[in-house]
Computed example of a mutant assay.
Amino acid sequence: MRSLLFRTAIPALHLFSPKTLTLTLTLVPLLPRSFSSKSPPMASSKDEPPSSSSSLSIEKQFEGFRAHLEDSNSLRDRIRAVAVEMESATRILYSSLLLVHQSLPISEVLVKAARQIEVLKGHYGRLAEILLECPGQYYRYHGDWRSETQTAVSLLAFLHWLETGNLLKHEEAEKKLGLGVSEFGLDIEDYLIGICFMSNELPRYVVNQVTAGDYDSPKKVLKFLTDLHAAFRMLNLRNDFLRKKFDGMKYDLRRVEEVFYDVKIRGLAPVETAEEHSMQT
């Protein structure tokens, strides 16, 4: 009777295996002893970082950058506009100098070139006025007119040599261009590069002069280039643009030497006096 009641109370217990029974019991969730329906506390708004003030400071800084860049670009555009006019003036000056290769009198060449020199001087005056608006920033904008300055120095040096037979000095070049006032002067490296450019014209000048019957010009040009090349060798030049231009000067010197020796071998060179020979030695 007792076994019958036990089977009736749990009629299907004998149908489960021990493993199945254990798995079934473990799947029943257990509730904690104390359950609270309250949600976790939210973070206070006071703990958030002050992003609004940080954004304003960043925006204010970049607003200053924007104004600075706009002023700089406006100033650079004005400088480049003057540089374009300087380039045009140097091209006209160079075209005037080309007449010397046609055996025209040097006096006529100098008169035509003098007009463009005054034009160039006026352009440099305008450039100096613009640079007064940004004191202490000469080399920041220097690259915008550097090439034109080097060309101008080479042409002025060639003109000066045609007129005097001597090298145009740095101070003389500044004076001709109206520079040397306040912070706006002639950069030494630009001057030296311009002198190297000037030497490129001398071999052509010698050939044209000999063709025109001036057999004394090779000796004069050779002496000038030899002294100039020796002076450049005093400088400790590094592997940059100036060094490359100086290396090109030796080829100009070699071409002039070839013309001089050719004229001398053919017996076309004037006979040197004892006084001239002693001065050269």
Rank of each mutant, 00 (worst) to 15 (best):
Arg2Leu: 12
Leu5Lys: 12
Arg7Met: 07
Arg7Lys: 14
Ile10Pro: 01
His14Cys: 03
Ser17Ala: 06
Pro18Arg: 10
Pro18His: 07
Thr20Ala: 15
Thr22Gln: 13
Thr22Tyr: 09
Leu23Val: 03
Leu23Pro: 00
Leu31Ala: 13
Pro32His: 11
Lys38Val: 13
Ser39Ile: 00
Pro41Cys: 06
Met42Ala: 13
Ala43Cys: 09
Ala43Gly: 07
Ser45Gln: 09
Lys46Tyr: 06
Asp47Gln: 05
Pro50Lys: 09
Pro50Gly: 07
Ser51Met: 11
Ser53Ile: 13
Ser53Trp: 04
Ser53Gln: 15
Ile58Lys: 03
Lys60Ser: 10
Glu63Val: 01
Gly64Leu: 13
Phe65Asp: 12
Phe65His: 11
Arg66Asn: 02
Leu69Pro: 01
Leu69Ala: 06
Glu70Ser: 08
Glu70Ala: 11
Asn73Cys: 10
Asn73Phe: 12
Leu75Gln: 07
Arg78Phe: 00
Ala81Asn: 09
Val82Gln: 01
Val82Tyr: 01
Glu85His: 11
Met86Asn: 01
Glu87Ala: 08
Thr90Gln: 08
Arg91Asn: 08
Leu93Met: 14
Leu93His: 00
Tyr94His: 15
Leu98Met: 14
Leu104Cys: 08
Leu104Lys: 14
Ser107Pro: 00
Val109Ile: 15
Val109Thr: 13
Val109Gln: 01
Leu110Ser: 09
Lys112Gln: 15
Ile117Glu: 05
Ile117Gly: 04
Gly122Cys: 07
His123Asn: 03
Gly125Glu: 12
Gly125Gln: 14
Arg126Met: 12
Arg126Phe: 02
Leu127Glu: 03
Glu129Pro: 02
Ile130Asn: 01
Leu132Arg: 15
Leu132Asp: 12
Pro135Met: 13
Gln137Val: 08
Tyr138Ala: 00
Tyr138Leu: 14
Tyr139Glu: 08
Tyr139His: 11
Tyr141Thr: 06
Asp144Lys: 04
Trp145Cys: 07
Arg146Asn: 08
Ser147Lys: 14
Glu148Ala: 15
Glu148Phe: 04
Ala157His: 07
His160Pro: 01
His160Thr: 08
Glu163Met: 01
Glu163Arg: 07
Thr164Met: 04
Gly165Met: 08
Glu171His: 13
Glu174His: 05
Glu174Lys: 06
Glu174Val: 06
Gly178Ser: 07
Gly178Asn: 07
Ser182Asp: 14
Asp187Ser: 08
Ile188Tyr: 14
Ile188Cys: 00
Asp190Asn: 08
Met198Tyr: 10
Met198Asn: 10
Asn200Asp: 14
Arg204Phe: 14
Tyr205Lys: 01
Val207Lys: 10
Ala212Pro: 00
Ala212Arg: 06
Tyr215Ile: 01
Ser217Glu: 06
Lys220Met: 00
Val221Leu: 02
Leu222Lys: 01
Leu222Pro: 01
Thr226Lys: 06
Thr226Phe: 03
Thr226Asn: 05
Leu228Asn: 03
His229Asn: 11
Ala231Cys: 02
Arg233Ile: 06
Met234Asn: 11
Leu235Asn: 05
Asn236Asp: 13
Asn239Pro: 00
Asp240Pro: 05
Asp240Gly: 15
Phe241Tyr: 13
Phe241Trp: 00
Lys244His: 10
Asp247Glu: 12
Asp247Lys: 04
Gly248Ser: 08
Leu253Pro: 04
Val256Asn: 01
Val256Tyr: 05
Phe260Thr: 02
Asp262Lys: 04
Asp262Thr: 10
Val263Lys: 04
Val263Tyr: 03
Lys264Leu: 10
Arg266Pro: 00
Ala269Trp: 03
Pro270Phe: 04
Val271Met: 12
Glu272Lys: 08
Glu275Phe: 15
His277Ile: 05
